[in-house]
Design a binder for these strands. Structure first.
Length: 490
RNA sequence: CGGGGUGUAGCGCAGUCCGGUUAGCGUAUCUGCUUUGGGAGCAGAGGGUCCCAGGUUCGAAUCCUGGUACCCCGACCA
């Protein structure tokens, strides 16, 4: 076995890491904490990008691009914001190198120190709001609904492929509005877009909600989020949408003339999802045989493997395969025909399972004779042999079925590990088992902190949906408006 | 920054304690033949500054000193 994976149940972290590398998604780079996204991994990311971009445009947004470097003084304009990011910033201090006096290599030219250091963006609120100041004078200039696809850098101490890397790819939407109501609506709308994408494209069920004050984005008034649950029972924040109030408008002095002829500060939102979604996708569906990709995001949905002896037979099979490919493509199904002669069929079967291709077709001599094709679905690994005539319609339905089946499987798992917990003693026992624990909380940061200290569990969100019955805090016994979602998180 | 560990072929490792043939195994690669419905078999081949520098010794992957890189656990992670 060339590419044996560790088992999921044995060591989940190692299984995840092995899988990312062996399925050719990504690898660690020579630069500490940075990641190389390999072509297959990038192809999945591109599918995600394409769908998200379409959804952003359908909700009235446009793309733009802002600078990688942020003057240090910009970052410090908003007090909470700089405090939140200061500890993980990469800083540019010089703009030139020169030959080393000892003749070995180059050194940073001490003469070339920048007057003001530049921060490599950890997020772009500050550079964008300094720009928006020039774009906005009147209510007629609003709203501004911009999105940017970019890379950002956060100098994390410890990193993990896709889940937390020093540099990552993402999109960040930054909008400016004339009223508070409109801005809140926008941030909620984009959260809905994220949830829609997660559930209908990634097949990852998510909980929508609002963050507690201590988990809130640095500089935001409210942070809305979608929280997913991984197969090892740990939570993963999959996307966030922030209502920024007038904080950044005030910090960058962005005022506008209202319809009523008065002057007011602009209301803002920002929202983002990153390559971390790749981690969510992998950790939600994959099994010990490798990736399981949802048909809606698979770089190719179907792979055809010929099984043959000799060139003549291959030619006959290839003809059948190409006919079938044309019919599949006509239905909008992406398909790869793997007639690579240097790998054996068994090797290809294992390889495409590792890579998560939703449907695999095999055509051999037997099928030529009987007019059939063998269909194997990745999610259940079930195989069946059916007539090749009209099989394209069957496959189209099968792909839809796989999409809903893997969503349902993930949703069932989540339901099985989500439970109400009412006593803190019970909580301490249950948190070790993983999953979402729905508990009453008195709403104070102190209680939240105590729970985090003692159990490593955090409030993932205060959910919008579900049970809103009031109760008593499991720790302090004080009143609680509704249950909140606790979990250990990535 | 604190604690622990590891640097030997593209990758994964053994050998180091107790110095001694030509440094070995798995896998990958290349060649040939046979194979092809679940990661093929056999035969052969190529591939090494044993992390770096210095020291001890007749002799160092192995012992000593210094350096360095990476990994894990913590601190950090809107």
């Amino acid at each position: 076995m060339a590419k044996e994976l560790t088992s999921r149940s044995e060591n989940y972290s190692q299984w995840y890491n092995d899988l990312v590398i062996k399925a050719d998604l990504a690898e660690n780079s020579a630069v500490r904490g940075c990641m190389v996204i390999k072509p297959y991994g990038y192809a999945i990311w591109e599918k995600m990008q394409a769908e998200l971009d379409r959804m952003f445009k359908e909700t009235g947004h446009v793309n733009a691009y802002f600078p990688l470097f942020i003057p240090k003084s910009y970052l410090s304009r908003e007090a909470d914001h700089v405090e939140g990011f200061a500890k993980e910033c990469a800083v540019v201090t010089h703009y030139r190198l020169k030959n080393s006096p000892d003749g070995k290599g180059v050194i940073v030219d001490p003469e070339a120190r920048l007057e003001e250091e530049l921060i490599v963006r950890p997020t772009s609120e500050t550079i964008i709001w300094s720009t928006y100041k020039n774009w906005i004078q009147s209510y007629r200039d609003l709203p501004i609904l911009c999105n940017q696809w970019a890379n950002v850098v956060r100098w994390e101490m410890r990193t993990r492929l896709f889940l937390r890397t020093a540099e990552f790819l993402w999109q960040e939407g930054h909008t400016a509005h004339a009223t508070e109501t409109e801005a809140i609506e926008e941030s909620r709308r984009m959260l809905d877009v994220y949830a829609d994408f997660a559930e209908n494209f990634m097949a990852v069920p998510v909980v929508k909600g609002v963050k507690s004050a201590s988990e809130r984005f640095a500089g935001a008034l409210e942070t809305f989020c979608i929280e997913a649950l991984m197969q090892d029972g740990k939570a993963l924040q999959a996307g966030t949408s922030h209502f920024l109030g007038q904080n950044f408008a005030k910090a960058f002095d962005v005022r506008f003339a209202t319809k009523e002829g008065k002057e007011d500060f602009v209301w803002a939102t920002s929202w983002g999802v990153s390559t971390r979604l790749m981690g969510a996708l992998i950790m939600t569906h994959s099994d010990d045989n490798g990736l399981v990709l949802p048909p809606n995001l698979a770089p190719y949905q179907v792979v055809i493997v010929p099984i043959y002896k000799g060139d003549e037979q291959l030619a006959q099979i290839s003809e059948k395969a190409r006919e079938l490919m044309a019919r599949l493509k006509a239905l909008g199904i992406s398909v790869k025909y793997d007639d690579n002669d240097t790998k054996k069929p068994g090797w290809k079967f294992a390889e495409y399972e590792l890579k998560g291709v939703p449907v695999r077709l095999a055509i051999g001599a037997r099928d030529l004779e009987n007019g059939t094709v063998e269909i194997a679905r990745r999610d259940t690994l079930a195989k069946e042999t059916v007539s090749i005539d009209g099989v394209e319609n069957y496959i189209k339905k099968l792909l839809e079925d796989i999409q809903t089946t893997i969503y349902q499987k993930a949703a069932d798992y989540r339901a099985s590990v989500t439970r109400n917990i009412d006593s803190y003693d019970e909580f301490k026992v249950e948190i070790e088992k993983g999953g979402f624990l729905l508990c009453h909380w008195d709403g104070t940061p102190e209680t939240e902190e105590k729970i985090k200290e003692e159990t490593k569990a955090t409030i993932r969100c205060i959910p919008f949906d579900g049970d809103h019955t009031p109760g008593l805090c499991m720790v302090t016994g004080r009143p609680s408006a509704q249950r909140v979602v606790f979990a250990r998180a990535y």
